[in-house]
């Protein structure tokens, strides 16, 4: 099952094959959880959003058109789930320095990266994570975030500048 590509697995899952969907979960759970963890800075919340994302994807897999690719579609659902959560808790829209670092990671580096990400606006953070961390091309980032490509490029530029400034101030000079 793991040797099959996403398109085949999605087709089987749409016909009710649970093992095919489980294979998709195994393949995409880590990147999605990593993205949501960096986006929220809160491991339990990130996992709840990832679960919600997979359940929505499972229920709507019959409507997946296949134009954008399953991974893009999944991240789009994940980003929407995050936005809905944010709308529900508007005071938690911006992260702060007290966010927990990723469990098990090098505490200093993880804390610095999370602190640097916390200084970005949500859209900048999401665009940066999707493009640089998950290797999505700009057009796909635009599709995930429902934004024009030019807006995504602006977010990337601003986000990257802010991140570099903060990291340089904290001793992460280019080697």
């Amino acid at each position: 099952m793991n040797s099959l590509n996403d398109t085949v697995l999605v087709g089987r899952a749409a016909l009710g094959d649970r093992r095919a969907f489980d294979a998709l979960v195994s393949r995409h759970a880590l990147p999605l959880r990593r993205y949501l963890l960096r986006l929220t800075g809160d491991p339990p919340l990130a996992d709840d959003l990832a679960q919600e994302t997979f359940i929505k994807a499972y229920c709507r897999i019959g409507t997946f058109g296949g134009l954008a690719g399953f991974r893009t579609w999944l991240f789009r659902i994940g980003y929407n789930a995050f936005c809905s959560h944010r709308r529900g808790e508007h005071e938690a829209a911006e992260l702060d320095d007290s966010l927990p670092a990723a469990e098990g990671a090098d505490p200093d580096t993880a804390h610095d990266v999370q602190a640097a990400l916390a200084r970005l606006r949500t859209e900048e953070r999401s665009a940066l994570l999707l493009h640089y961390m998950e290797d999505f091309p700009v057009a796909k980032v635009a599709a995930i975030m429902h934004m024009p490509v030019g807006t995504v490029k602006s977010h990337l530029k601003r986000g990257r500048d802010k991140l570099e400034t903060f990291l340089k101030q904290n001793g992460y000079e280019k080697e």
Partner: peptide, 25 residues
């Protein structure tokens, strides 16, 4: 930048995550 962002975020509690999801599905 990618290495820095990814860091060494571990795949913590993968079995727990997938088990919980399987139950919901």
């Amino acid at each position: 930048l990618r290495d820095l962002l990814r860091g060494d975020v571990p795949d913590v509690e993968r079995d727990f995550f997938e088990g919980r999801l399987r139950h919901k599905l």
